[in-house]
């Protein structure tokens, strides 16, 4: 089976490192982006199978990046990462087409479960 490619978008390197480690151990291939603009760029160039994206980032935040990605690809599978549980932000993300949201800090299992549902 082809390796599935996951785009991790987070301005915090640690989050990306953590996420990447979890995913690579499970046989996913990983592409990283540091902000929304890079995320859109990488989404077009790398065509990942799913995206894990932080909500609050410099340059372009996750919500706007989510909207842009969904415009490029209405079937895009995106889960949002969030450190704060602000219901209205999360609701915005869901309205913009996010399929899941994961609260930081998260357990590896949570990410893996979310991905397997996203990729179904």
């Amino acid at each position: 089976m082809m390796q599935q490619k996951i785009l991790i978008v987070d301005d915090a390197k640690f989050m990306r490192v953590r996420c990447a480690r979890i995913l690579v151990e499970r046989g996913y291939s990983v592409v990283e982006a540091e902000n929304g603009i890079q995320a859109i760029e990488k989404y077009q160039n790398e065509a990942p199978d799913a995206v894990l994206m932080d909500i609050s980032m410099p340059e372009m935040d996750g919500l706007n990046a989510l909207r842009a990605i969904r415009e490029l690809d209405p079937a895009a599978r995106v889960a949002m990462l969030t450190a704060m549980g602000q219901q209205n932000v999360v609701i915005e993300a869901i309205k913009a087409g996010a399929r899941d949201f994961i609260v930081k800090p998260f357990e590896p299992d949570r990410i893996l479960k979310s991905l397997s549902k996203l990729l179904m």
Binding site: T82, G85, Q86, Q87, V90, I91, A93, I94, K95, R99, F101, V103
Partner: peptide, 13 residues
Amino acid sequence: GIAPLARLLQMYM
């Protein structure tokens, strides 16, 4: 969960 109503909205949508 962190934003339970958002989950219901997700289901609704």
